[in-house]
């Protein structure tokens, strides 16, 4: 039997903070087996060496914010068998999508001494607005265990175990007392995708919505619940307008509270 060729994996970066690709380096315990199972063809955070495509799996971090990136993502798509986006930037536009609610031309001169050198798009958009994406792994940052699970599942040709339900189920399974019911703390858990293991409520904080909207997110009822706890309209706008501000359900909800 011929030696099995190791799958070639590339990691790509667009507008992002690098936190998600660093999660891969953070997988200390699992890293050796990952490196054993695949050939890392391109991973700027870890090595300068670049192996030419095509790639079996491309992990894409970051959102599209420049005309150049708009082109580059198509090249990557063409040279990748599977394209998996990782993190809130790549899957919803990220925190930088706050620009989408304003006119970007207004603040370029405020930030850059020579605005004429800046070439940027009016919106920060997720990767799947531009190319076909095979799988989206959400979170700001992603959960490293979920990343290993996704790679593992694709390598073993099975479905990744990444639930579509909300954070509440993770709280309840781990026995965490609901911070919203028992303490009146506004929490986005009921509309937010699970995946973090319900971290914040376990430390007595409300969920910030890092993983973006869950399936069937009832953001209208969520806002009514928050309002009953004394949360104001501007606060609601800010709550839905964070790392996943441009994810459809969160975007619409923040807009509904903006006058």
């Amino acid at each position: 039997m011929a030696a099995v060729r190791k799958p070639k994996i590339a990691v790509w970066k667009f507008a992002s903070c690098d936190g998600c690709q660093l999660s891969l380096l953070d997988c200390e315990d699992e890293l050796l087996s990952i490196v054993g199972a695949v050939e890392i063809a391109s991973f700027p955070e870890a090595t300068r060496a670049v192996v030419k495509g095509p790639y079996d799996i491309s992990l894409v971090e970051g959102s599209i914010t420049t005309p150049h990136d708009e082109e580059r993502i198509h090249t990557i798509r063409r040279s990748s068998k599977l394209l998996i986006t990782i993190g809130a930037c790549a899957t919803s536009g990220g925190i930088q999508a706050l620009r989408n609610f304003k006119n970007v031309a207004d603040f370029i001169p405020m930030v850059y001494a020579k605005p004429e050198y800046i070439e940027t798009l009016s919106k920060s958009t997720p990767i799947n607005d531009h190319v076909f994406v095979d799988f989206q792994l959400r979170g700001c940052p992603i959960n490293k265990l979920q990343l290993v699970e996704v790679l593992n599942a694709f390598l073993n040709r099975r479905k990744p175990v990444t639930p579509a339900h909300g954070v509440c189920m993770e709280c309840k399974r781990r026995g965490t007392v609901c911070v919203m019911v028992a303490n009146g703390t506004p929490c986005l858990g009921p509309v937010t995708l699970a995946g973090c293991g319900a971290l914040c409520p376990a430390y007595d904080r409300g969920c910030y919505g890092c993983f973006g909207p869950k399936e069937t997110p009832n953001t209208t009822s969520m806002s009514a619940g928050w309002t009953a706890l004394g949360v104001t309209e501007p606060e609601l706008v800010r709550a839905f307008r964070s790392f996943n501000a441009y994810a459809e359900a969160f975007r619409k909800e923040s807009e509904a509270h903006e006058r």
Binding site: G166, C168, M169, K172, C178, P190, V191, N218, S221
Partner: peptide, 13 residues
Amino acid sequence: ADRCLSCSNCTMV
């Protein structure tokens, strides 16, 4: 259904 968050808390508890 307008109010329900389909968050599953009722079934978990």
